[in-house]
């Protein structure tokens, strides 16, 4: 936390750093951040709950993000999501029982001109199809073994 204290937006940058390191923000983070930034625990919790990037529970080993915004809708993202959910037996916003996958919505990845867009563990995918997403997921899982 210390390198971020006294910097503009320091709390948010510190929380980002913690999450990048361990994948989520365990409840101990709140107390530690409150002490470091001289805030109340409620204020820190308020910031964590406000931003979509921050999570308080670990995500699945692989995270698939599907764009749900208009430009991708105009290129079939609604159907794509249904099909991906069916093939991977998962629901949007949920983590699989085995913990190998989290599927999330995202509003715009800036790839609107070649939609639908997706992101698998931070890797961007344009013109996404159910086949591309499923094979991308399998390949990512394989790499982690």
């Amino acid at each position: 936390m210390r390198p971020y204290v006294g910097r503009a937006g320091g709390l948010i940058s510190a929380l980002r750093a913690v999450q990048a390191e361990i994948g989520y923000l365990p409840s101990e983070t709140e107390g530690a951040a409150a002490t470091a930034f001289n805030l109340t625990r409620a204020e820190v919790k308020g910031v964590i709950s406000f931003y979509a990037d921050f999570v308080r529970k670990p995500k699945g080993e692989t995270v698939i993000r599907l764009c749900a915004a208009e430009a991708c809708q105009a290129q079939g993202s609604r159907m794509l999501e249904k099909e991906v959910c069916r093939r991977l037996a998962i629901e949007p916003g949920k983590t699989s029982a085995s913990g190998d996958l989290t599927l999330e919505h995202v509003f715009c990845l800036g790839l609107c001109s070649a939609g639908p867009a997706a992101m698998i563990d931070g890797v961007l995918m344009a013109k996404a199809s159910p086949e591309k997403i499923v094979s991308g997921f399998e390949a990512t899982k394989e790499l982690k073994k």
């Binding site: 503009a8 937006g9 320091g10 709390l11 948010i12 940058s13 929380l15 980002r16 930034f37 308020g46 910031v47 406000f50 931003y51 979509a52 990037d53 921050f54 509003f107």
Partner: peptide, 26 residues
Amino acid sequence: ELFIGAGAYICGEETSLLNSLEGKRG
């Protein structure tokens, strides 16, 4: 300085952005 947001569409609204840049809820 470059500052990275944390996933909030509303932070594109200028006053919300400023709050976020101060490390607060946007």
